[in-house]
Design a protein around this nucleic acid. Structure first.
Lengths: 201, 201
DNA sequence: GGATCTTTTGCAACTAGTTGCATAAAGGTC
DNA sequence: GACCTTTATGCAACTAGTTGCAAAAGATCC
């Protein structure tokens, strides 16, 4: 049910239409819970049926016409409960580790290039995160800053989130930064110690 | 298609029945690609249809009777190709980060306990990994060791995997160790900087 | 004023993973 | 020999995520 709650969070930050949500996902919540527009439309429909959101009036809800959604009190209550309820981390599923394990059994050239490619992808993602940190949390200490604004600055629409909210958003971002940093370190180590038999050239 | 390849890898290490695979998954490959017995049975059937594995003879393939599977040359070829082919990392999907982000908007008590619980889970997992490293790779340097044995020591059935294979398995394990270490560090940081408004007591 | 491009919403089919339960054989036990 | 537990295989229904495509409305262009 995580996607529904991701949507509720995004809608509380700012009421939006399906497509706007999709775009906002791409540059904030989507970093750790990506979703396509189809998923979002389907989920919005379910949320509406459940009475957690509703369409703002003054909009003819016809095909091709924008429908702006807003969170209802029931939706907010649901989100609050979900946020602090117990929920186990979902098990790790990483195909690259699996492929390395397979290579230990059957070998496989081209792995070196593949590791380099992943390294580049993770470096790019890290840079993106660091740029956001620089832009929105410049000068704050590690994960406990304060001030104004948020990850996305649409047009001064942020509700000025208080210091706690800001600190939490920074913490989440630090999570992404730490994760990418880990992969970069691990891939670097992997490339150094990669057996010659798996090297590309 | 990752599960199919995980199964091929496990079967190459040692031909097994569905239930044996399930158990072996629980203590090695399943650390980064878990699967239930139902998933494994379904996948074995597909792999058999595709001609990638076959059932060893001298076994009546009846319900309740063990069926021992073995990888065919086509399966090995498929696995080799898959291991070094290009494949993007799947996007991160982490509910805890999402919940923190939600808490930034709606608050939520009980989060502190939840973070502590996750911290304990990750510490336990890290210990498990470190115990495996100690047992199977004691004395090896970071990710480039050599020697005998593998992650699972069933009964001396390991085919003595050469130094390269061993190094790769160690590298994969170091991946797990690094990942757990990252979460432990991040959760510790999170607990230190957690706003009072979200604390439990 | 018709062509076509963009924005927005949406369906349908598919793939992957989860959950709950059913069935069969083998071996122990009383 | 009736009953219980363990080992082993499996079906069916469900939930979640992906992919490909279609359709309505408005804007733009010539």
């Amino acid at each position: 049910m995580s996607l529904a709650h991701a949507i509720l969070t995004a809608l509380l930050e700012k009421p939006s239409s399906g497509l706007e949500l999709t775009r906002r996902f791409d540059k904030s919540i989507g970093y750790f819970w990506p979703a396509t527009h189809q998923q979002i439309y389907r989920e919005l429909k379910k949320l509406e049926e459940a009475g957690h959101v509703h369409v703002l009036p003054a909009r003819r809800p016809e095909r091709g016409q924008k429908k702006e959604y807003e969170v209802l009190p029931a939706g907010r209550a649901e989100l609050t409960a979900w946020a602090s309820a117990g929920q186990d981390p979902r098990p790790v599923r990483d195909a690259l580790l699996l492929r390395l394990r397979a290579a230990a059994v059957v070998g496989g050239h081209g792995l070196e290039d593949e590791l380099r490619r992943h390294l580049a992808l993770h470096r790019r993602q890290l840079e993106e995160y660091l740029a956001i940190e620089e832009r929105d949390f410049a000068g704050d200490g590690r994960g406990d800053g304060r001030g104004d604004g948020g990850e996305e600055r649409d047009a001064g629409e942020e509700r000025g989130g208080d210091a706690d909210a800001r600190r939490l958003r920074h913490l989440v971002l630090r999570g992404g930064i730490g994760l990418e940093s880990f992969w970069i370190a691990w891939l670097t180590e992997a490339l150094e110690g990669l057996p010659d038999a798996l090297r590309t050239a």
